[in-house]
């Protein structure tokens, strides 16, 4: 099927198989491999992207469902060569270990801060509970999100 959508601000038109997920489309067809696949059933959050501004598991969305939508992936967060404050905070706070969960984690955090610019730690945990990190750098991730929220409010 023909699919047109906006990815990271750019219009994309591609043929895609109806049964391919948005995750497969992004990684295999568009070549945006920053979005990661782990459980492929909505439990780990590694494939999190923003779909029309909302955090979703791209493994649970068919590519064809996104016709006309706007998708933001981890590759779309940098602006003019500048890291997003969340990306910077993840680096600064030591929240990155193996890094495989990080793109999904950052997009989930992006959505969280967009909905709630001053989250409590409990709200941060709730917002990121769908993103597994086996290096379990969770406490540093909380630090990073808290810090990015603070920076954004100033």
């Amino acid at each position: 099927m023909n699919l047109r959508l906006t990815i990271n601000g750019k219009e994309v038109a591609r043929e895609v198989a109806a049964h391919h997920t948005l995750l497969e489309f992004l990684r295999d067809d568009v070549g945006l491999t920053g979005t990661k696949e782990c459980c492929a059933e909505g439990e780990c959050g590694a494939c999190t992207v923003l779909l029309d501004g909302k955090a979703v598991n791209s493994c649970l969305v068919l590519a064809v469902e996104t016709e006309g939508s706007a998708v933001t992936t981890i590759e779309g967060l940098e602006k003019d060569g500048q890291l997003d404050p969340l990306q910077q905070a993840f680096i600064d706070k030591g929240a990155v270990q193996c890094g495989f969960c990080i793109p999904g984690m950052i997009l989930a955090a992006k959505y969280l801060l967009q909905e709630n610019s001053n989250p409590t730690d409990a709200e941060i945990k709730q917002g990121l509970a769908g993103n597994l990190c086996r290096c379990a750098g969770y406490s540093r991730i909380i630090d990073a999100v808290r810090e990015a929220g603070r920076a954004a409010r100033q």
């Binding site: 955090a55 979703v56 598991n57 649970l60 969305v61 917002g127 769908g130």
Partner: peptide, 9 residues
């Protein structure tokens, strides 16, 4: 019900 990402869909 699920995570934020699940509840958004």
């Amino acid at each position: 019900v699920g995570s934020v990402q699940i509840r958004n869909r």
